[in-house]
C-alpha cells in the first residue's frame, strides 16, 4: 500500500490534518464543520456555480470555492467569518430575488434545499429585488414537469442528464440574467430525446423539476363507487417510502430523555 500524503491546515482556528486531494468542503466536514452548498452534488456536479460554499482563505483576494478547491499545505481557512456570512447572505438574497417564492403550493416544500437555506439564514426580507424571469411551465411530458420559475440554475439536472445518463436532453440556453435550462429548440421534454428516467428530478434542489402528479386521478377513482380500484406496489417502493415520514417528536423526546441523562 502506498503511503498517503497528509496535509496540515487550519479551519476556523482548528488544526486539521487531512488527506491530500480532499476539497475544503470535505476537510471541513471531517472536523464537523458544515459549509452550506446548493449547486454541489457529489461526483455529479462539482462546478462552483452558486457560490454558497465560498470560504475565506487567508492571503487570497477572492473567496475560495470550497466544494471544488483542494486543500493545500498551510492554508488558513475561515468558513464562517463575518465577510463570508455576509457574502453568502447576499448570494442567497440574489437567488431568492429571482425565484417564484410560492413555497406553500410547491411539491418540494419541506424538502427544498433553497427553502432550508432561507430558514438557516433567517431570511425575513429580501434586500435585493428586481426583475424576475418568467417562464411557461412545461407539463406536456407524461412524466416530468419543468417549472423554471423555480430554477436556480445550479445545473445539477444538466450534469445528471449529460454526464451520468449521457442523454443531454437539457442544457443551458441564453446567457447572463436570461440564462435558462432548456431543450433543443426550447421544445417540451415530451418532444425531445428525454427518456423520462427522472434522474433530473432527483438532482433538483428545488421544485423546478418534479413528477407529473397523478394523485388527483387516484382520489377520483377511489371516490367512484363503480370502480374496482386495485393498487400494486413495486419492490423498490417499500424500502424507500418510509423516508418520507418522520417519527413524531414525542418518539424522539422519549428516546432522548428516557435514560434520564
Amino acid at each position: 500500500m502506498a503511503e498517503e500524503n497528509y496535509i496540515n491546515l487550519t479551519i476556523d482556528g482548528t488544526q486539521v490534518k487531512t488527506k491530500e486531494g480532499m476539497t475544503i468542503l470535505e476537510a471541513a466536514k471531517s472536523v464537523g464543520i458544515d459549509i452550506p452548498t446548493l449547486c454541489f452534488l457529489k461526483d455529479i456536479n462539482e462546478v462552483g456555480d452558486c457560490r454558497m460554499c465560498i470560504v475565506e482563505v487567508e492571503g487570497r483576494k477572492g473567496f475560495a470555492t470550497s466544494c471544488i478547491q483542494k486543500v493545500e499545505e498551510g492554508m488558513i481557512i475561515h468558513t464562517h467569518s463575518p465577510a463570508v456570512l455576509e457574502a453568502r447572505r447576499v448570494i442567497l438574497d440574489l437567488i431568492l430575488s429571482n425565484h417564484h417564492k410560492d413555497c406553500l403550493t410547491c411539491s418540494r416544500s419541506g424538502n427544498c434545499e433553497l427553502q432550508n437555506l432561507a430558514i438557516k439564514f433567517n431570511v425575513q426580507n429580501i434586500e435585493y429585488t428586481g426583475k424576475q424571469s418568467e417562464h411557461t411551465i412545461d407539463d406536456l411530458s407524461p412524466s416530468i414537469v419543468r417549472d423554471f420559475n423555480k430554477c436556480i440554475l445550479c445545473r445539477r439536472c444538466i450534469a445528471t442528464c449529460k454526464n451520468v445518463q449521457k442523454i443531454g436532453a437539457i442544457d443551458c440556453m441564453n446567457r447572463g440574467f436570461d440564462s435558462c435550462i432548456s431543450t433543443v429548440n426550447n421544445q417540451s421534454l415530451r418532444d425531445v430525446n428525454c427518456t423520462n428516467c427522472g434522474q433530473c428530478i432527483e438532482a433538483c434542489p428545488t421544485g423546478a423539476l418534479r413528477e407529473k402528479d397523478n394523485t388527483d386521478e387516484v382520489w377520483k377513482a377511489l371516490k367512484d363507487e363503480k370502480k374496482y380500484v386495485i393498487v400494486q406496489t413495486a419492490p423498490a417502493v417499500r424500502v424507500a417510502l418510509g423516508e418520507e415520514f418522520r417519527y413524531a417528536n414525542r418518539y424522539k423526546c422519549n428516546r432522548k430523555n428516557g435514560n434520564g441523562s
Partner: peptide
C-alpha cells in the same frame, strides 16, 4: 456586463442585474 455575463455564477448573473437596476 449584464448583457455579457455568461450566467454561470449567481453573483454575476443576478448581482450585476440588480446593480444595474
Amino acid at each position: 456586463t449584464v448583457d455579457e455575463s455568461c450566467g454561470k455564477c449567481t453573483p454575476c448573473r443576478i448581482g450585476t442585474k440588480r446593480m444595474q437596476e
